[in-house]
Design a protein around this nucleic acid. Structure first.
Length: 258
DNA sequence: TAACATGTTACGGT
DNA sequence: AACCGTAACATGTT
């Protein structure tokens, strides 16, 4: 589930619940669930990997982290006799039937207006995405590595490890490149591809054909030069798996010692 | 089937 | 104080 496009798809599946009233809420999250009772779900939005259920004056922020999932019960489903399964992080039941269970998620309140809490221009899938602002943020952090900065949610909200690997390949930038050593053309390539690939991801995920379109992620051969990809390693300060071609993806700047 | 992964946060140590 | 590394969390897939 977890990268930005998957959250956008999840949001769409949940749209039918907008306007309905929460009858009961429970779960293992340390939240005052009573706050949700009898409240009307006013809107559902997303910001990158954050799913935002908006109520009057506050919102419930759901983050599926690495393993999270969402189970939707429609009106005709029984009230869920899932006795064997563990308690969801958040379980919502709506008046008139149906509900939503979030499992293995992070849940917290966002107080007040979501527009005050979130910078929508940082969301790569948002109509408010601002590539100029993203480029300026990159230029302000010349010491960062390309593989780390693409995962920075304050710059590329919604980008996860799969998107990171594919974007670096499309831009022909080695993951260990230093941002400060990248030519302008490549900085703008990274920014442009972060959005473009995210929309491709979205479309392929919708059609259930995402994996077959991966160029480097979980692959062993470079589709461009036909040589073997670099051995899979965890690199950068985030220690995430990197799939890249050592020949096609150019290294800018001196690699860190070690 | 055991191992691993599309992620973030909290914490202790320096 | 700011930064670093590691642990902790928990489910679905192969």
């Amino acid at each position: 589930m977890p990268e930005g496009p998957s959250i956008l798809i999840l949001r769409e599946r949940l749209v039918p619940f907008i306007g309905r009233t929460v009858q009961d809420a429970a779960g293992r999250a340390a939240l005052d669930f009573g706050r949700l009772r009898s409240r009307r779900l006013q809107d559902i939005r997303s910001w990158g990997k954050h799913l935002l259920l908006a109520f009057d004056g506050f919102s419930l922020r759901i983050h599926l982290l690495l393993f999270g999932s969402c189970l939707i019960h429609d009106r005709k489903d029984g009230d869920g006799e899932d006795t064997a399964t563990p308690t969801p992080t958040v379980s919502l039941r709506f008046a008139g039937g149906g509900g939503i269970d979030f499992k293995a998620a992070s849940a917290r309140w966002i107080e007040g207006d979501l527009d005050a809490a979130y910078d929508w221009s940082a969301d790569v899938l948002s109509p408010h995405w601002d590539p100029q602002a993203a480029q300026a943020k990159l230029r302000a952090r010349p010491g960062e590595l390309a593989c780390d900065i693409l995962l920075d949610q304050s710059i590329f909200s919604g980008v996860g490890n799969i998107i990171k690997n594919e974007v670096l390949f499309r831009a022909l930038v080695h993951p260990l490149s230093h941002i400060g050593a990248l030519p302008d053309t490549h900085v703008s390539q990274l920014v442009a591809q972060a959005r473009d690939y995210s929309f491709d991801f979205l479309e392929w995920k919708r059609r259930n054909v995402l994996k077959r379109h991966w160029q480097v992620h979980e692959r062993t051969t470079c589709p461009r030069c036909r040589h073997a990809l670099a051995p899979v390693r965890r690199i950068g300060k985030r220690r995430r798996r990197s799939f890249h071609c050592g020949r096609c993806q150019r290294l800018y700047g001196t690699p860190a010692p070690g």
